[in-house]
Design a protein around this nucleic acid. Structure first.
Lengths: 195, 195
DNA sequence: GTCTATAGCCGGATAGAC
DNA sequence: GTCTATCCGGCTATAGAC
């Protein structure tokens, strides 16, 4: 260790991603420089361009990976049962997935406006697919007569905002454990939508 | 008009604030330059420093004014009646205040990390006072037996996130009128907290 | 109160040596 | 794969003329 030169692609590659994520979450994309990222990684700025074509790609790759991980995990969550059961699964899944990823959540919500238009469109499409998963549960519950929601789209946006907001203030080791929080939120969601 | 020189403090002052708010909401504080603001105002960059001591003060003043306006308006909303009535007043007040101020809401939530530490503390304290107003309503309702919330603090954060999230996606002239939206959200809030 | 001009620094990205 | 060195431009903020 403490080598100043040499090849470290196995180590440096992930380290660039991790460092960029952390710094962008903390200071914002526009406020973080490539030199700053390089310094924390332990290389010179020029070396970063072996791992990303430019700064914009660095941001886009972080956000795309987060959204893809989210969609993959949702599909594996395999929602079953009636609409109420599926809503509980979705709610608990959302919290469990997002809480340990506060940096990713933060960046994915705060840095949308710093994406180039085509990158923005790609991320928005992925986000929309996730929202639609919740909305279809609400629609099914309405048909089944279990839920009573005046407008499924508005309710979808309201619930996701409520759930995601949790990631913005929850801190590990705080007053309440994740399990407790999860149950409190599920309670709020259930009561809000049931007839 | 179209004068290139001269004194315009009455016009330029507010214009600087308005322009800064709009540009920062659109691109982010770090991504917006003083030159850019000056260009949209119609002056040279140096002239901005007649209206703000530096860029940081420009941001802080915008956020402080927004939070002060919010607290002032809340006090005038004069919450009366039982906890349920006061919760409805609060909910409708929140939506009516925030919806026409999407740029202020956006900046006040997104740019917290770009505030200097002392400025951050000041804004956070103001935000906390607003949150506490809602929490005290929830506590009263719990005592009165009207509400059933497992944890007033968590519920406060959940409800505010839900309500404020509305400002992030609502666009005037969209599918639904503000009054309709307001009623949908009040319905969700009421059902989520009542016993 | 606004202008022009500029100081002094930092930004993204690239070239070529090793 | 990483380094050093550099191009070229943009940044905040200030100085002094009008």
């Amino acid at each position: 260790m403490a080598r100043k030169q040499g090849s470290h692609s196995d180590i440096t590659g992930p380290k660039v991603q991790d460092t960029a994520l952390r710094l962008i979450a903390q200071h914002g994309y526009a406020a973080v420089s490539m030199r700053q990222i390089a310094a924390e990684v332990g290389v010179q700025a020029g070396a970063l361009y072996n791992y990303t074509s430019d700064k914009q790609s660095l941001l886009f790759d972080l956000m795309q990976r987060h959204m893809q991980d989210l969609l993959d995990a949702l599909h594996k969550a395999d929602l079953q049962g009636d609409a109420l059961a599926r809503l509980e699964t979705f709610t608990r899944f959302h919290i469990r997935f997002h809480l340990p990823r506060s940096d990713q959540v933060f960046v994915s919500y705060m840095e949308l406006r710093n994406l180039d238009p085509e990158n923005f469109a790609a991320i928005e499409a992925m986000r929309r697919r996730y929202e639609d998963a919740l909305e279809s549960i609400l629609r099914d519950g309405e048909v089944e007569g279990i839920f009573h929601v005046p407008d499924t789209r508005v309710t979808t946006m309201a619930l996701i905002a409520m759930l995601t907001g949790l990631s913005h203030w929850y801190r590990e080791g705080g007053r309440l454990a994740m399990n407790t929080i999860e149950t409190i939120y599920w309670d709020l969601v259930r009561k809000a939508v049931t007839a």
